[in-house]
Amino acid sequence: MIVCHCTGITDRDIHAAIDWMRQADPETIITPGKIYRALGRSADCGGCLPLFLDTMRGNDNLEVPRNLRGLRRAATSEDANEGR
Score class of each variant (00 low, 15 high):
20 W>N: 08
48 C>M: 00
46 G>Q: 05
83 G>I: 05
41 R>A: 12
13 D>P: 09
2 I>M: 09
41 R>G: 09
74 A>S: 09
56 M>S: 08
49 L>K: 15
71 L>S: 11
47 G>D: 10
44 D>F: 02
73 R>V: 05
45 C>I: 01
37 R>T: 15
82 E>A: 12
23 Q>L: 12
44 D>A: 06
63 E>K: 15
52 F>E: 01
42 S>N: 15
71 L>K: 12
64 V>R: 13
23 Q>G: 05
56 M>Y: 00
66 R>A: 08
6 C>M: 10
46 G>I: 13
55 T>V: 03
22 R>C: 08
24 A>K: 07
57 R>N: 04
60 D>R: 15
20 W>F: 11
25 D>Y: 04
47 G>C: 09
84 R>Y: 12
80 A>D: 12
10 T>H: 06
3 V>N: 00
12 R>L: 10
42 S>A: 08
80 A>I: 03
79 D>P: 08
56 M>K: 00
57 R>D: 00
15 H>C: 13
14 I>F: 03
83 G>D: 06
3 V>Q: 00
43 A>D: 06
33 G>L: 07
31 T>E: 13
11 D>L: 06
11 D>W: 12
35 I>A: 12
73 R>E: 14
65 P>W: 01
17 A>H: 08
48 C>I: 04
71 L>M: 09
68 L>M: 14
8 G>Y: 02
1 M>E: 07
11 D>Y: 01
50 P>S: 10
43 A>K: 03
69 R>I: 12
40 G>K: 15
4 C>H: 06
44 D>I: 03
17 A>E: 05
39 L>P: 10
62 L>V: 00
19 D>P: 02
47 G>R: 02
1 M>L: 01
50 P>L: 05
11 D>S: 08
32 P>L: 03
36 Y>W: 04
15 H>F: 14
26 P>W: 00
62 L>I: 00
74 A>Q: 10
4 C>M: 08
81 N>F: 14
69 R>T: 14
45 C>S: 05
64 V>W: 08
35 I>H: 00
84 R>Q: 11
48 C>A: 04
61 N>K: 06
82 E>R: 06
45 C>E: 03
81 N>E: 10
64 V>S: 10
83 G>C: 03
28 T>G: 03
24 A>H: 13
1 M>D: 04
41 R>W: 09
59 N>P: 06
53 L>P: 09
80 A>N: 07
48 C>L: 00
79 D>K: 03
45 C>N: 01
31 T>C: 10
39 L>Q: 09
13 D>Y: 03
37 R>G: 08
37 R>L: 15
44 D>P: 01
21 M>P: 01
76 T>M: 08
72 R>I: 14
62 L>W: 05
12 R>Y: 15
44 D>E: 15
14 I>T: 07
26 P>C: 07
33 G>S: 11
55 T>C: 04
